[in-house]
């Protein structure tokens, strides 16, 4: 068992958090409040020293760049929320943030989630060499390789059809949408399994910390 005080604190707090698996209890409450409080304070300091000072204080008050008066004014207007009388002023910086980022993301999202995705899906529907490979060496791997491109194309198109909101999902349209949902659910299933395995590795890491770093059992 270690004599390092830091490891002891980390181990005991880990056990406090894990005790939530049984039910809510005072140990969990203690660790939770400590975690929330310490992390909130940490991020407050982080923002002051890594955002406010280098991005506002230094350019405005050290380098004298007067353009930075605008973000300073917006920041002060945001703080006005704390006072009932001028609280309405905080709406302006909020509107500025939401409007700016909505406009900015319009271009980013259109490129990343639409144009680039369509371009990546422009593939040959039938890859003859893959089918030749399959007929030469029949098997699951060569078969999956041969049908990969058609599956991608059908999955993308039917998936897009599912996300049509202004038309009722009936008839052929409904059938395509249902196929799209199947593709989505299969993809979610694969993603679920993959991520669960990643979480298991996190659990193993924590148990290893307790048994190795703290107790020195393994």
């Amino acid at each position: 068992m270690t004599t390092d005080i830091g490891t002891w604190i980390a181990a005991l707090l880990t056990l406090c958090i894990l005790s939530f698996l049984y039910k809510d209890n005072p140990f969990y409450k203690f660790a939770e409040h400590l975690f929330v409080g310490v992390s909130a304070a940490y991020w407050a300091c982080y923002y002051i020293y890594n955002i406010l000072i280098p991005n506002l204080y230094n350019p405005l008050f050290v380098q004298g760049q007067l353009l930075y008066i605008i973000p300073l004014a917006l920041g002060i207007m945001m703080i006005m929320k704390l006072f009932p009388q001028p609280a309405w002023m905080s709406r302006f910086p909020l509107a500025f943030i939401v409007g700016t980022y909505a406009g900015y993301n319009f271009i980013t999202y259109l490129q990343t989630y639409a144009i680039d995705q369509v371009r990546a899906t422009l593939v040959r529907f039938v890859a003859l060499e893959s089918w030749q490979e399959f007929f030469a060496r029949p098997g699951a791997v060569t078969f999956l390789s041969a049908i990969a491109l058609p599956v991608v194309v059908v999955g993308v198109i039917t998936g897009l059809v599912y996300f049509f909101f202004s038309r009722e999902h009936k008839g052929i349209f409904g059938g395509l949408a249902k196929t799209g949902v199947w593709f989505l659910m299969i993809a979610f299933g694969a993603s679920f399994g993959y991520t669960v395995m990643a979480r298991i590795s996190l659990l193993i890491g924590r148990v290893y910390f307790l048994l190795h770093n703290w107790l020195h059992i393994i």
């Binding site: 939530f20 809510d24 409450k29 992390s39 991020w43």
Partner: peptide, 18 residues
């Protein structure tokens, strides 16, 4: 507001739910 920390936030919300 709870905290900017991802898992600090998760711990806080879990506690509130319970």
């Amino acid at each position: 507001y709870l905290t900017d920390d991802q898992f600090g936030y998760a711990a806080g919300v879990d506690g509130m739910m319970m």
